[in-house]
């Protein structure tokens, strides 16, 4: 499961995780998605970009 908040700054990035995953599945550009969701710091961006969901 994705951490609830960004490990560095504490922004609740997990709230955007489902939308991010859905849009990635639709082959959208990661940069565009993150910019549109207003995640601008690189600490928060890496949380979504680098997350691997292992719980299946």
């Amino acid at each position: 499961m994705i951490p609830v908040r960004c490990i560095s700054c504490g922004k609740p990035i997990s709230a955007f995780f489902d939308e991010y995953q859905l849009r990635i599945a639709e082959k959208e550009d990661s940069k565009v998605i993150l910019d549109e969701m207003g995640i601008k710091r690189y600490c928060c961006r890496r949380m979504l970009i680098s997350h691997v969901e292992t719980w299946e």
Binding site: M1, I2, V4, P12, S14, A15, F16, F17, D18, E19, W55
Partner: peptide, 10 residues
């Protein structure tokens, strides 16, 4: 909760 979409568990 402020956000409705925070995944808690599966």
């Amino acid at each position: 909760p402020v956000y409705d979409t925070i995944p808690l568990l599966k």
